[in-house]
Design a protein around this nucleic acid. Sequence first.
DNA 1: CTAATTTGTTAGTTAAGACTAACTTAATAC
DNA 2: GTATTAAGTTAGTCTTAACTAACAAATTAG
Lengths: 218, 218
Amino acid sequence: MHSLVEENYLKALFALSKDKGSVSVNDLSKHLNIKMPTVTNMMKKMAFKKLVYYESYKPLILTKKGKKEAALIIRKHRLTEMYLVEKMGFGWEEVHNIAEQIEHIKSPKLFAKMAELLDYPKFDPHGAPIPDINGEMEWKAYSKLSECKPDDMVKIAAVINTTDEFLKFLNRREIHLGLKIKIKSVEPFDNSMVVKYKNHLEETLSNTVCKRLLVEKF
Amino acid sequence: MHSLVEENYLKALFALSKDKGSVSVNDLSKHLNIKMPTVTNMMKKMAFKKLVYYESYKPLILTKKGKKEAALIIRKHRLTEMYLVEKMGFGWEEVHNIAEQIEHIKSPKLFAKMAELLDYPKFDPHGAPIPDINGEMEWKAYSKLSECKPDDMVKIAAVINTTDEFLKFLNRREIHLGLKIKIKSVEPFDNSMVVKYKNHLEETLSNTVCKRLLVEKF
DNA sequence: CTAATTTGTTAGTTAAGACTAACTTAATAC
DNA sequence: GTATTAAGTTAGTCTTAACTAACAAATTAG
């Protein structure tokens, strides 16, 4: 099995390669807060273990094996988050740090039990998909709220780039998954949106916020 | 905070010093499966951190601080075991390994929540006392089943020196905490006991087994 | 009470995973 | 298209926590 450190490299590689499919040493270094030479070294070790394709001066690419192992760690993370929220009563802004630790626990039984008790959930408390036991996962085709137009009626499906602070911000405005929102207007100069939902008849959301809210139109 | 490794030394020191109050380097070395020089080294580091009293060639003694920190790790371990059994449906023979990992998690909130959901339990699934939030804990004055006499009626209060195998052995005989047992006879040559409980009218338990069962007389 | 054995320590080595300093390759700018 | 800047690598160091080999102290045996 892999060390906790390797698991963190795997997760970072997986997260950063979402779009391009590859990652630079620099990006990985910044994301993990680890200096570049250390990253280079680790990539050589992980290449030897067939977790990543590594060639000098070229972008890093996860192997199939690396991707699967990363996805399985993410599975453990998201299952844990869901468990903490659904079964233990934590708020969605409290669970990240705990899950960050529990995801490294070696006990297939523990996570199998969580999945069972949660009735095999497909999404975590932030709307992110939970990879299945084979590491398979797919994001649904959500739009960003920031890309919607006035008069669109949308439902909040997921929150991305979550931080505790951002989630607390949403809490204060009673914004949660499943919430139905109507877009009243978009300010042209800063792309902030005025939206309406529940008893919030005129809430303004900055573009920074809108870019982090994934929605389903309906 | 302390490293996972230090936490394991603390736990081992605490467990081994139960009776004598002190531990030899040798015992600690054997218990942790770590060679003596490594232990000596670590003791110096931990003495510097005021977790243990260390003098060359003298027995190791936990400081008050060391004892408290050890007890708090044991608290996390036993709370976790209780949580896994009571809230997740694990068997008492399955929880040790998982708790061994979860006990190192840094999240006061997580363990506070477990305690709350379990309604502040005083004992773990094996009958061992759970230290309170200040690290205070006390074993009740139980007897070993091996020290009981024929015709004694006793109730199983705790299981000590538990291993998965021993707990499975108890499962197969339907022996569990709270079970009421009558001692029918004691074989003088090997101190094995013939006992009666529930629909087990004549079950023989070896001395090895009886020494690991703590009971309350009634 | 000395000899043998056990226990404990010292010194030096190793591996993992971090770092800095210095150098090289690749990318960008003019 | 060369010069500058950014990115990546190499080499060497550090810390933690393990190890072995060799030595020293304490205990036990006779």
